[in-house]
Design a protein around this nucleic acid. Structure first.
Lengths: 201, 201
DNA sequence: GTCTATAAGGGGATAGAC
DNA sequence: GTCTATCCCCTTATAGAC
């Protein structure tokens, strides 16, 4: 077991505070305090608040995309199995990082340039693979809708957690069970809505 | 046509800047400039940045909830019709206020106390009504899953818009058509997944 | 009601001792 | 590598003239 370096302590503190409060509301002094050190060392190691933030976001974004990319772009995995695995992986990841999706999506909307840079490093290009599998499977849904529905079902409970709790729809101590339960249901739901024929109005 | 008062100009400017940047990143000077006035008047009318923010959030939250509440809590509307109307209303509202859901959900997660206060003023209590309709309809889904799935399908494209555009899944100039198309499909999707029987694994 | 000028404090960053 | 002290700009808020 390596001792934790000061640099690592700062990264972990930054991770925690930035993810909780977002870039703008975060004070570098608070990160330093959380890390058990001081402001000068933060700048000594990372140069500036912004550089430290880029560091954190890069890791978080990688975390978020790597729970999906390798599975989605593997042509040997059938599409139903992909949905099952992604639902499982993501829910697991998010249960350990509940603030992750809202943090990433919000910072993304505020700072599109930063993410445009980072996404170029990380892209997986799974779309053509799934597109092909989708055509061959005869599913009644477009690629865009399939992906948006799947991600929405998985991510939305975490994004809207305060609303869900405030409304009393789910009790705080049952939230984990709620999303864990959903991760089993989501694949079946997604399959069922790809069997949808033209709706009678 | 009434002339727009200074107070109203400030509110509109605050609405725009807060919604775009969030509370922490917003500078009161920028709101004043956007309103074509100055910092002193902002404090003359609203007392402080925070009070102005509460004002904006109250209206935005009301806007978000009123697109759903009155329909959801009306026991005379069948459940399928509710889903159809809510999908229609929300999508329309969000097309005119794309940043609304991410703004509200993000500020909510940062400042739970503020929203706890505001939600008490605005609550609709539609859950018991829908719960009853759900039991009588024989749909194979829980109330929580029905609501989370429906809201997720409607809201998620707007929340994840930068991700959806960056991935190339939808082109910028087709985003409106994408979500407008979804608002017709969502009711059918939701119905289809409530017909889901126990999945064979 | 509206403005200019300024107070008071917080924020990120750095100098320089150890 | 680590710390304390400090710089200096920017922010919110207010005083006071008009």
């Amino acid at each position: 077991m390596e001792p934790i370096t000061t640099e690592e302590k700062i990264i972990r503190a930054a991770d925690k505070i930035f993810t909780q409060k977002g870039y703008a509301a975060t004070r570098t002094r608070e990160i330093a305090e959380e890390a058990g050190t001081n402001l000068a060392l933060l700048n000594y190691y990372f140069g500036s608040k912004e550089k430290l933030f880029r560091n954190v976001v890069r890791e978080k974004l990688k975390m978020l995309l790597s729970a999906m990319g390798p599975i989605a772009s593997d042509a040997s995995i059938p599409i139903e199995e992909k949905i099952r695995k992604i639902s499982e992986n993501y829910t697991q990841l998010l249960l350990e990082n509940e603030e992750l999706p809202l943090f990433i999506l919000n910072e993304w909307s505020v700072n599109k340039r930063l993410f445009a840079d980072l996404i170029r490093e990380t892209r997986q290009h799974a779309e053509p693979v799934i597109e092909k599998q989708l055509r061959e499977s005869g599913m009644q849904i477009t690629l865009e809708d399939l992906i948006v529905n799947t991600l929405g079902m998985i991510l939305f409970p975490f994004i809207a957690k305060p609303l869900i709790l405030s409304s009393g729809l789910v009790q705080e101590d049952q939230f984990t069970a709620f999303v864990a339960g959903r991760k089993e249901k989501i694949p079946a739901w997604i399959i069922s809505l790809t069997k949808q024929t033209v709706a009678s109005v």
